[in-house]
Design a protein around this nucleic acid. Sequence first.
DNA 1: AACACGGGGTA
DNA 2: TACCCAGTGTT
Length: 372
Amino acid sequence: MSRAADAFAAPLLAWFDAHGRHDLPWQHPRSPYRVWLSEVMLQQTQVRVVVPYFERFVDALPTVAALAAAPLDDVLALWSGLGYYARARNLHAAARACVTQHGGDLPRDFDALVALPGVGRSTAGAILAQAWGDRFAILDGNVKRVLARYHGVDGWPGQSAVEKRLWQLAREHLPRSRLADYTQAQMDLGATLCTRHSPACGDCPLRPGCVAHAQGRSDELPTSRPGKTLPTREALLLLLLDAEGRVLLQRRPPTGVWAQLWSLPEARDEAEARDWFARHAGAGFDGGETLQAIPHVFSHYRFVMHPRRWQGVVATPCVRDDDDLRWVPPAALRELGIPAPVRRFLEASTAMRDNGRHASWAARPSSSGDPP
DNA sequence: AACACGGGGTA
DNA sequence: TACCCAGTGTT
């Protein structure tokens, strides 16, 4: 608004016309559904990673109605590898809410959008601004960084007082027109010039008014998150292969990491693994081969998986194909939502499996087992 | 207010 | 290795 908007929005828009991104897949065509999907995929995920997922997703599910009608497993399979799978579950639930409550498309209303699962203040604003040109602010990582530098805002943006101040600044800078371009311009500036490391201040249209640049503090704003050391958790992964080379997969619980994805059965320790194996495959636990450990890092802890493999398993009667436990042929793995490190391990251990009919249960040296 | 929630990229 | 990235939901 007023003079601040002129000094901020006007040069930003002029820069966007010449140097912004105008060829992103969700811009052609730019429908509310495609904007919504792109915004959700882009939460905590970079453009380069999102683009192929976005194209595959809209190709399979081109409308809100198609998404609402799809089984959740299909949605999770399309999401598999993107991470933060609650986004996919919320997206699916929100599409169904749009069908039952909003006539089959996204509502053009901030409060109604925020009421949808997985849509917060920033995503709702982005949808309204980009799809309709409505005058709403966003505050994603890029905008936080640009505003923190432009105004010299100290403090980690994760702190509520800092975030509140940044929201206020974001609203104050809103222009009176071109909201779709303005929204994209902020994100493009943050992604291409005002980057976290080595920002290209020499090319920045906002440099004349930038407090951080004037004070030589562009490299220390925004303030970094307080450091913390990650705890480590470990678990056993149970890889059971039957005589046809099918893999026994288990659906994960509805909450926690990798919720509702398909993965290998997991045990906290040897005793729990032995018990699980006895109930599902009978005798033979000691014939399993220990394979190379699979390290994985989450945002909040390290996770080391220790896979153990049994081949030619004959399942006990309690192991049947049902909603939570399935024998899956290797070719069908692509159709399921599977955590990325588990998928890599499965693809390696099935593709590299040497048609192993020769020794089946004979122990191989664990140190030279199939690498994940 | 603090924490949970994935995965890939980069210095 | 450590940190960052187009956030939201839960407690």
